[in-house]
Amino acid sequence: MKRRDFISKSLKAGIIAGSALSIGNYEKLFAYNSLLTQNDYHLAAVRGGEPDIMFDEAIKALGGMKNFVKKGQTVVVKPNIGWDVTPERAANTNPLLVNRIIKHCFEAGAKDVYVFDNTCDNWKLAYSNSGIEKAAKDAKAKVVSGATESYYHNVKIAQGKKLKEAKVHELILNCDVFINVPVLKHHSSADLTIAMKNLMGIVWDRGYWHRNDLHQCIADFTSFRKPDLNIVDAYNVMKRNGPRGVSKADVVNMKSVIVSPDIVAVDAAAAKLFSKEPETVAHIKIANDMKLGIMDLEKLNIYRKVI
């Protein structure tokens, strides 16, 4: 019981890390966490099924999508759609998973669900060949371009050490609920790309991050707007040559999904799944130290299920 209180408080503290203010006043800022009871899970991990079925199971364990999406709210579902490659190459989020998440959002009463990414390859080719454009439209989501600078607006990152400001897509700034749907991959510059790294797809000038200590910038930006929910697609996992991959030979079928409102925890769990210790991935360690979330999975109440 005491441990749980501690976790709950730490999560809240993460929002205002570095400040000496009392924690209690900020409860509302972390809506999900304040709703947690003793038996609630912080993180749900499911193995062995198809992406959509695994997600059904995981979100149920976290109390269903209604815990995150309220009636009439606007939702952004942000998958990784970085590359013009086919789904089996696992360079982009699994389309089936994206489709199912959107359906859950609408079932929970979402007014609108938007899907976009600031892609690396040509955005139209990446949207269509990843299968995500169709999967999202089939679920009645609105697919929006991330390749237009005018959609991005300058914001200050109060907690940033290296990254003090960034241009962020207006859908993120305007939405009620932000659901982050990365795919777990090897990454040549960031070691791994999971939930925090996926946020590079909601900003405009990524070159700045690369010039100015990439790992620190990834952690810095996480402090700006933490997603309300992080869903890591580890169904097919690119084990090397990431983030684009060279061929299907780089990919293994891990059949896993990890879901949590804590972006650092979800990255830590996914790193372990990748057989990498979270603290060896610099941005996960930095984010943990900045108290943006909890890297030590021992401290969390985790739902585990093999189907």
Partner: peptide, 8 residues
């Protein structure tokens, strides 16, 4: 510092 944008 880490970069690797080219390799990505």
């Amino acid at each position: 510092k880490a970069c690797g944008a080219c390799s990505e």
